[in-house]
């Protein structure tokens, strides 16, 4: 059992949890993920590690409440426990030697982009952060991003906070203005990563994306997380989750991500009703 030492609502649908998991904290690195299970009949869901504290033995996760499992997870209070919490899984992000990097986070993907930006900042890289959200209510981690970046830009779809527009608009502007990025690291919805990669390809900038496909075991056993990268099938859990974005088949990933859409929808509604009744 893994105790929740802190729980904080970041916005109406996104929550941060600090979980006591000393063995995971001891080994965690930016880019890696954990798999958790909330209860005995629960499913295993992967969540990227948002932060870790080796001294206190804690791991931070940030999740969006999207389906049954995240709803149930969100029912847990501080000092209560998560049944299973395994990690760190996946390969750490390879950020060694990068001097000038643009980190792009979209929505809850910012939770994953943050530790990468932080690690880059700590190794002395020049970090530019572009974060994008649908509207001002969904903004997370702005203060944190400012602390670990040299330049930070905020955009929203409706212009209710920051500049109105897409992360790609800012990226294009920066590149056109002469910013020389060794690498762009983009983490967010698949569709955002797809468009970022389409743009960076034109400018021939190496781009890394963090993939978060459907997964069960997370150790290379089930193959559910497979994706096509440069025409080859890779397993996100052991070969990733970071991949060269210019090689990833995003359309396939988007399609595969929707495999259980109907099931998830039904479960979400049933859980919603149940929780409302209980409340």
């Amino acid at each position: 059992m893994y105790t929740i030492v802190k729980k904080e609502r970041l916005n109406p649908t996104v929550t941060k949890m600090v979980v006591l998991a000393p063995k995971v904290a001891k080994k965690a690195k930016a880019g890696q993920f954990i798999i958790l299970r909330v209860h005995e009949n629960g499913e295993r869901i992967p969540l990227t590690i948002a932060d870790y504290d080796r001294v206190n033995g804690t791991v931070t996760i940030i999740y969006q409440i999207v389906g049954k499992t995240t709803m149930l997870l969100n029912q847990l209070k501080e000092q209560e426990s998560i049944l299973d919490f395994v990690g760190p899984l996946g390969k750490p992000s390879n950020i060694e030697g990068l001097k000038n990097v643009c980190v792009i986070g979209g929505g809850v993907g910012c939770a994953i982009a943050y530790p990468t930006a932080k690690a880059l900042h700590e190794q002395g890289s020049n970090v530019t952060v572009i974060s994008g959200f649908r509207n001002k209510d969904l903004v997370i981690l702005q203060k944190e991003f400012e602390q670990v970046s040299d330049h930070s830009y905020l955009v929203s779809d409706d212009g209710s906070t920051g500049k109105k527009g897409l992360v790609t608009d800012v990226l294009k502007e920066l590149i056109e203005q002469g910013s020389q990025f060794d690498e762009v690291i983009a983490i967010g919805p698949l569709i955002m990563m797809k468009f970022v990669c389409q743009m960076t390809k034109q400018y021939n900038i190496k781009t890394t994306v963090s993939m978060n496909p459907i997964m069960i075991d997370g150790t290379g056993m089930c193959g559910g997380c497979r994706l096509s990268v440069g025409g080859k099938t890779c397993f996100a859990c052991v070969d990733g989750p970071d991949f060269d974005g210019n090689l990833v088949d995003f359309d396939e990933a988007i399609s595969r991500g929707a495999t259980y859409k109907d099931f998830e929808q039904k479960e979400r509604e049933a859980t919603c009703n149940l929780l409302q009744k209980e409340a």
Binding site: M221, G223, G224
Partner: peptide, 13 residues
């Protein structure tokens, strides 16, 4: 990699 293609490991798991 179409939807509906499983490894036996995934299906059985």
């Amino acid at each position: 990699n179409l939807k509906g293609v499983y490894s036996a490991n995934e299906f059985l798991t």
